[in-house]
Amino acid sequence: MLILFVLIVLKHIFVLLSCVPMENKNLELLEEKFQQKIDQDIKIEPNDWMPDNYRQTLIRQISQHAHSEVVGMLPEGNWITRAPNLRRKAVLLAKVQDEAGHGLYLYSAVETLGADREDTIDDLHSGKVKYSSIFNYPTLSWADMGAIGWLVDGAAIMNQVPLCRCSYGPYARAMVRVCKEESFHQRQGFEIMTTLCKGTLEQKAMAQDAFNRFWWPALMMFGPNDADSKHSAQSMKWKIKRSTNDELRQQFIDVTVPQAELLGLTIPDADLKWNESTNHYDFGTINWDEFWQVVNGNGPCNAERIEARTKAKENGLWVRAAAMAHAEKQRERTKQSA
């Protein structure tokens, strides 16, 4: 009996041992096939096999993106009740509402990866997951609505357009929707700036002040320099990311500077000048200390933003519970009457 038992155990150990290299081999094969699909621009869909790292990277990136949309509602939401006329009020409200919509499209993409929306939101509230740092800057005047639409949404579009071709199907499809809607955002921002710049001296000064405060943070939105960006290479290979941070930043500066000049605004960078040989603008050094401080929680509004979102969730718990309880009661009632 004992001998039989030992034999069985031995057999199991043998099977286990022989399985490990086989499984590794299988995994390698799967990963190779996966990369081939990506190289051939075949989209990855939710139920397809994918490397765990690919899944985790996407969950992190898409949920960060979703959180950014939702936290991004707060700085602009700050001015809805003070918008200067009814048309602007409606436009701003519709714009901020779109951000909520974009958050939802993205959470919906995250959920296809097996992540739970509420879990990722809890990670946001606990500080485990970040969102775009730009939303940790305060909105101090009406002109900030213009600057955000023009610069922040402009930078976001530049980041997002390549993502419409991202290798993960649900993310790419969400981005197509988001990009379509974002272009209205940028235009309404630019329209606000144009009106201010054509207005009184006070209005022009308001526009310049907003531009001064948002220019550098907008450049930081593209993330660290390529040399310091730890996820970039793998993400490019997986086609989760399709252009580098520095490429996108340069592209943004090149298109935005002429727009600022058209508005008659001064770019708050003494080193900014056109470079004939590269056909790009040269620009000054970004304050990376400030960038990392804000990322790590020391921005002017980090605490307020997270507090506002946490409160919204906590204050909503009883509402969610009530709706579930009612739905449950309704099911019981239908069952009984059947």
Binding site: D98, L104, A109, E111, R117, A174, A323, H326, A327, Q330
Partner: peptide
């Protein structure tokens, strides 16, 4: 896409607000 809702009625209403704004 998808969304969260406690019951079918609200799911339809939320879908209207989230996916047919334009």
């Amino acid at each position: 896409g998808s969304l969260r809702a406690p019951d079918a009625q609200l799911a339809v209403e939320n879908a209207r607000d989230v996916y047919t704004r334009r």
